[in-house]
Computed example of a mutant assay.
Amino acid sequence: MEAYGVLLLMGVSGSGKSTVGTLLASELGWKFYDADDYHPEENRMKMSRGIPLNDQDRIPWLYKLHGILLREIASGERVVLACSALKKMYRDILIRGKDGTPRKHDKLGKEEEPPEVKLFVVHLSGSFEVISGRLLKRKGHFMPPKLLQSQFNTLEPPSAPENFIQISVDKELSEIITTIMEALKVQ
Rank of each mutant, 00 (worst) to 15 (best):
Met1Trp: 12
Glu2Asp: 05
Glu2Thr: 06
Tyr4Glu: 03
Tyr4Pro: 04
Gly5Lys: 02
Gly5Gln: 05
Val6Cys: 04
Leu8Trp: 01
Leu9Trp: 10
Gly11Val: 09
Ser13Gly: 03
Ser15Leu: 03
Lys17Gln: 11
Lys17His: 11
Ser18Asn: 10
Val20Cys: 06
Thr22Lys: 14
Leu23Cys: 12
Leu23His: 10
Leu24Gly: 06
Ser26Gly: 14
Ser26Glu: 14
Trp30Leu: 03
Lys31Gln: 11
Lys31Tyr: 10
Asp36Asn: 07
Asp36Gln: 09
Tyr38Asn: 14
His39Pro: 14
Pro40Gln: 10
Glu41Asp: 14
Arg44His: 09
Lys46Pro: 13
Met47Leu: 09
Ser48Ile: 15
Gly50Thr: 11
Gly50Glu: 09
Ile51Thr: 02
Ile51Lys: 02
Ile51Trp: 08
Pro52Ile: 05
Leu53Cys: 04
Arg58Gly: 05
Leu62His: 06
Tyr63Leu: 15
Lys64Gln: 15
Leu69Met: 13
Leu69Thr: 08
Leu70Tyr: 05
Arg71Asn: 13
Arg71Pro: 01
Glu72Val: 11
Ala74Cys: 08
Ser75Met: 10
Gly76Asp: 03
Glu77Met: 00
Val80Leu: 08
Val80Glu: 08
Ala82Gln: 12
Ala82Cys: 09
Ser84Ile: 07
Ser84Gln: 11
Ser84His: 12
Leu86His: 07
Lys88Leu: 14
Lys88Ala: 14
Tyr90Asp: 01
Tyr90Ser: 04
Asp92Tyr: 08
Asp92Ile: 01
Leu94His: 03
Leu94Gln: 03
Ile95Gly: 00
Arg96Thr: 10
Arg96Gln: 09
Gly97Tyr: 07
Gly100Asn: 13
Pro102Trp: 01
Arg103Leu: 13
Arg103Lys: 13
Arg103Pro: 04
Lys104Glu: 09
Lys104Tyr: 08
Lys104Met: 08
Lys104Asn: 05
Lys104Ala: 11
His105Lys: 14
His105Trp: 07
Asp106Arg: 03
Asp106Trp: 06
Asp106Glu: 08
Leu108Glu: 11
Gly109Pro: 12
Gly109Trp: 14
Glu111His: 06
Glu111Thr: 14
Glu111Lys: 13
Glu111Arg: 11
Glu112Ile: 09
Glu113Tyr: 11
Pro114Lys: 04
Pro114Gln: 04
Pro115Asp: 12
Lys118Asn: 09
Leu119Cys: 02
Phe120Trp: 03
Phe120Thr: 01
Val122Trp: 00
Val122Cys: 01
His123Glu: 04
His123Arg: 03
His123Trp: 14
Ser127Ala: 00
Phe128Trp: 05
Glu129Ser: 15
Val130Asn: 10
Val130Tyr: 05
Ser132Met: 05
Gly133Ser: 15
Arg134Phe: 01
Lys137Asp: 11
Lys137Leu: 12
Arg138Val: 15
Arg138Asn: 14
Lys139Cys: 08
Lys146Cys: 07
Leu147Met: 05
Ser150Met: 05
Gln151Ala: 00
Phe152Thr: 12
Phe152Asn: 14
Asn153Glu: 15
Pro161Gln: 03
Pro161Thr: 07
Glu162Asn: 00
Phe164Leu: 07
Ile165Ser: 00
Ile165Met: 00
Ile165Arg: 00
Ile167His: 06
Val169Pro: 04
Val169Met: 10
Val169Asp: 01
Glu172Thr: 02
Ile176Glu: 07
Thr178Met: 13
Ile180Glu: 04
Met181Tyr: 10
Ala183Gly: 04
Val186Glu: 12
